[in-house]
Amino acid sequence: MSPSLVLGGRYRVAELLGRGGTADVHRGLDLRSGHWVALKILHRHLAQDPLVVARFRREARVAAGLGHPSIAAFLDTGYDEVPDDSGNAVRVPFIVMEHVAGWSLRDLLRMGGLSPGKAIQYQVGVLAALEFTHRAGVVHRDIKPANVMIAAEGAVKLVDFGIARGSGDPAATMTHARAFLGTPVYLSPEQARGEIADARSDLYSAGCLLFELLTGRPPFLGDDPVSIAYQHVHEEPPRASAHHRDLTPAVDAVLARALAKAREDRFQSARAFTDALRSAARSLVHHDAGARAGALDHHVPMALATGTHVGRAALCG
């Protein structure tokens, strides 16, 4: 994408932040406000596929309806004529989001992991976002470290609603046979079976996220997506305390419930998950006290409301 390109007569395209299967994310300059934004631009070769375009437009509609401090803010959407490799103009849709100057949880894990206190603090922010989205009737369906941004001041921002659906939507499972929507490492058992995803499916994925934040590895690993999906359906996860000496049976109990195979055995709301996690956090003794205080606060830290910039590859779909 040319750095001289201006989308919609307003957004100047800057450097590439990340590339996904359906879209690229660039940093962009809003020429009206002078603020940096994140521009999610559908790949040109997909712009004439009506199903892909419909999904992209649905993502914009979902994002536009979700205003919360722990969710990257939707700003605008539109179309523009973009030249392809042959010089022909292609009408390409784009989404404009808040640009978060920071790192994804995937980045932080690759840098060497987190203390239990920081892991819990960030998880509380993710659960705050999910509590809001679920009350709005939206299931994210792709909770994973790459889709959680941490701004420089510590704000948690959930991003990428590219495969989000309304609760109970019969299409909220797989695109076609053996093609999983969502990332297999964080997939709920019901999604692996091709069943309809609901809020408790997101909470299972959030349980996988918490396990990885605390231990440095997901609960299930395998050589291919099918083997990982099989484990989600049939095998019990390991105890997190077996992978980190500072974790306690209380934390193991929270994860065991979050990762229950049957939806009815899991936490039934993000609020219930949060409350149980705060209680379990009190049993931790070897972690940063300041991070624990943030996790135990009954509100998302005020820093969550001040993030101004979505970066890296988090918005790519």
Score class of each variant (00 low, 15 high):
P184I: 06
S188T: 02
S188W: 03
A192P: 12
R193A: 14
A197T: 08
D198H: 13
A199T: 10
R200P: 05
S201T: 15
Y204T: 07
Y204S: 08
Y204Q: 06
Y204D: 07
Y204K: 08
S205K: 06
S205L: 11
A206K: 05
A206S: 15
L209E: 04
L210A: 10
E212F: 06
E212P: 03
G216E: 09
P218G: 11
P219D: 05
F220C: 04
F220H: 13
L221V: 14
L221H: 06
G222A: 11
D224L: 01
D224Y: 04
V226D: 02
S227L: 10
I228C: 06
Y230F: 15
Y230V: 06
Q231C: 00
H232N: 09
V233R: 12
H234F: 14
P237I: 03
R239C: 00
A240I: 01
A240V: 02
S241E: 01
A242I: 00
H243S: 01
H243F: 15
H244R: 15
R245F: 06
R245L: 07
D246N: 08
L247V: 02
A250M: 06
A250T: 04
V251R: 00
D252I: 05
A253I: 01
V254N: 07
V254Y: 12
L255K: 04
L255A: 07
A258T: 08
A258H: 10
A260I: 04
A260N: 05
K261Q: 13
K261M: 05
R263N: 00
R263V: 03
D265G: 14
R266D: 05
Q268A: 14
S269D: 12
S269V: 04
S269G: 09
F273C: 06
T274C: 08
D275N: 01
A276F: 11
A276N: 09
R278V: 09
R278M: 11
A280F: 12
A281G: 14
S283T: 15
S283I: 00
L284A: 04
D288T: 10
D288M: 04
G290A: 14
